[in-house]
Design a protein around this nucleic acid. Structure first.
Lengths: 207, 207
DNA sequence: CGCTGTGAAGAAGTTCACAGCC
DNA sequence: GGCTGTGAACTTCTTCACAGCG
């Protein structure tokens, strides 16, 4: 199985497995079976085994997976074994919430800089980070930041992305409700909150 | 094609099409072709046509789709043609940002109530909404609210979901980084920001 | 001609069932 | 006996290619 292409869906599930394993580890479980891990993340055991099989033989038959080792392996696969510096662009309501969020740390992310276009915000300090003017984006490469979170209004999302790519950013998490085009080699993941909410009623029984 | 099961992926794309159509409408386009719409949302034209074909013949050969009509049809399919009342539980950083967000309106959502467990927050007013104590969740059914957004800390997410389901909620948008179990018939969509960020480095060229 | 709608072909992802190891 | 790893079957989704209508 080792030589197959890894499905995108498998990659999407890896962070979920990691979360489950860290939880399992936190509970003191030295060993975690595919069944236990599956229950923790809401999938089926064979899916778990199949997913891991793309990367190697991590488990021990009759026993399960070494919790700590598997967590480490997944971190390596996802390249979360080194600290990933991230820039935040747009410190409005959502941007501020992201800055205040402490959940990124366990995955090795460090929000190392924050930018805004509003002169009233520039210079203010949130969580030890001084908000800079967006013109400073140019210097991102020098600061070894190559991922960014976009939390600006929709109408400036594309130009923000363009500036980021120009500054050497190769990964973007976009919270603006719009489709962003970038050159191949740059990965954009868009989270559109309203869009996810919008498909909820479809699945809800009539009321 | 009309009698086939609708793929989940198609349902996931419908809100994107709706966003594109509303944009097209905003630009005064009476007619939108599958090619134009595809460009607006980042898919291929045949995907657009196939997706719509599950629901009916909305287009005119040689011309395209009547922009306003198609938007209306999608709203009907997604049940966004009636106002959907939504409750927000957890008015922390993220919850406040969601309350302040104005992007839900165009899809017919009305955040009609907000709840928190912190007595210091209860009674405060944000955007014309008075924050209530979580014990008031019980009355949701009477208030005809059957969808909710969970923005509470991870450790209270499951119990919040349980309380919501008990109160008659059948659709939940969950922002807590954890897997929530509910009985069949209740739809949960989870947005885990850190999880989406966590798969970004995998796709980024080494740096 | 241009653009839609769709069966059929192809690709991608999931589930099964069981061999094999502890 | 228990649990992993995986080819093969199956299901789901995407893409193609083109008939058919305006």
């Amino acid at each position: 199985m080792r030589y197959h292409r890894v499905p995108n869906e498998t990659v999407r599930r890896l962070p979920f497995y990691l979360r489950g394993l860290l939880l399992s580890l936190h509970w003191g479980r030295l060993c975690t079976s595919s069944q236990e891990l599956a229950d923790l993340v809401g999938v089926r055991p064979w899916q778990v085994r199949k997913d891991f099989s793309y990367f190697g033989d991590f488990g021990t038959p009759g026993v399960g997976y070494d919790t700590a080792r598997l967590a480490k392996e997944i971190k390596k696969i996802l390249r979360l074994d080194v600290v990933q510096k991230v820039a935040l662009v747009g410190v409005g309501n959502l941007g501020s919430a992201i800055l205040a969020y402490t959940g990124f740390g366990i995955y090795g992310f460090d929000i190392a800089a924050a930018f805004d276009i509003d002169p009233k915000k520039v210079g203010r300090k949130i969580k030890n980070i001084v908000i800079e003017d967006v013109s400073n984006l140019r210097a991102l490469k020098k600061r070894k930041i190559n991922a960014a979170i976009i939390a600006v209004p929709q109408e400036s999302a594309q130009q923000t992305a363009d500036a980021l790519v120009k500054a050497g950013v190769t990964g973007i998490l976009n919270f603006s409700p719009c489709y962003i085009t970038v050159r191949r080699k740059v990965k954009v993941i868009t989270i559109d909150i309203a869009m996810d909410l919008a498909r909820l009623p479809y699945y809800m029984p009539a009321g």
